[in-house]
């Protein structure tokens, strides 16, 4: 690992100030960043640890009914504390990585990295959540901009995410057998007004996306049968040793039906 300075701020303002230095990098739970540093895939001048900032942690319900989760909240905490208010999200958090990863990895870290196979992005996109940073609010629709690419500016920190809570939802993933990352993962949600939203991770070259054709069909009838005749286009799907674009496109249909059935 290359050498770097460290900073351990205890509030968001100090963290933002510490990140102003050139090549400074935020360190959330470190479950992606630390392995990357070990492999010398990154060479920050300074790591700014976000784990000692109490205002970035915790799960609560806002007055408008949305579920608010601090960016520094671990997956294990979301799995435990969101279970009652938003079971679909808690279940998603409870199957990320493994137990040790869930005790360190955070919601904000996952979203800031935006790995094309990450578990949280489809839940954020499918619920139309809002990402609150140290400086502004970003709608999920505007936030995800392709693999490992987001609307975040240099040094911008995810303080909180606010999730509208669907009436029914489920996250189902088809795990790549070696890494256990999603080869295809789907978060399907039905809201009280009948609107259905479907977001897909792992499949597309463009990162997480909404499958709008399925959303339209499911908004009319919330049932796996409603989308039985639909097939996701293979164009733009990831092509690698684990699956061809056609295979991934096929899985998108299968996994979406399973997610609707499970919700």
């Amino acid at each position: 690992m290359y050498e770097f300075e460290i900073a351990t701020p205890t509030n968001i303002a100090d963290a933002v100030a510490a990140l102003a230095e050139e090549d400074a990098q935020a360190l959330a739970g470190g479950q992606t960043l630390i392995p990357s540093l070990k492999a010398r895939l990154a060479m920050p001048s300074r790591l700014v640890s976000l784990t000692r900032i109490p205002e970035m942690k915790g799960v609560c319900r806002a007055d408008d009914g949305r579920l608010c989760i601090g960016g520094g909240t671990t997956h294990a905490t979301v799995a435990a504390e969101a279970a009652e208010a938003f079971a679909g999200l808690a279940a998603l958090a409870g199957q990320i990585g493994d137990a040790a990863v869930r005790n360190r990895g955070t919601l904000g870290g996952s979203l800031a990295n935006n790995d094309p196979s990450a578990c949280y992005p489809p839940a954020v996109l499918a619920t139309g959540a809002t990402i609150l940073t140290d400086r502004r609010e970003i709608a999920a629709e505007d936030y995800f901009q392709g693999m490992f690419t987001t609307a975040l500016e240099e040094g911008e920190i995810i303080a909180e995410v606010r999730f509208p809570v669907p009436e029914a939802s489920a996250d189902v993933k088809f795990a790549q057998p070696a890494s256990r990352f999603a080869l295809v993962g789907v978060f399907a949600a039905r809201f009280a007004d009948g609107a259905a939203r479907v977001a897909v991770t792992g499949a597309s070259e463009g990162g997480v996306y909404r499958w709008r054709e399925a959303e339209e069909a499911l908004s009319e009838t919330w049932s796996p049968d409603a989308i039985a005749g639909l097939s996701a286009p293979a164009e733009g799907m990831i092509d690698d040793a684990h699956g061809s674009p056609a295979y991934r496109a096929h899985l998108v249909g299968v996994i979406t039906r399973r997610a609707v059935a499970a919700a």
């Binding site: 460290i6 470190g30 479950q31 630390i34 640890s49 137990a99 040790a100 990863v101 005790n103 360190r104």
Partner: peptide
């Protein structure tokens, strides 16, 4: 997972956490 330890009661990978943390 060979390096698992408990930090404040939670199981973590000691290889994926810095000593300063």
């Amino acid at each position: 997972g060979a390096c698992l330890v408990h930090v404040d009661g939670a199981v973590v990978k000691a290889c994926s956490m810095f000593a300063f943390e």
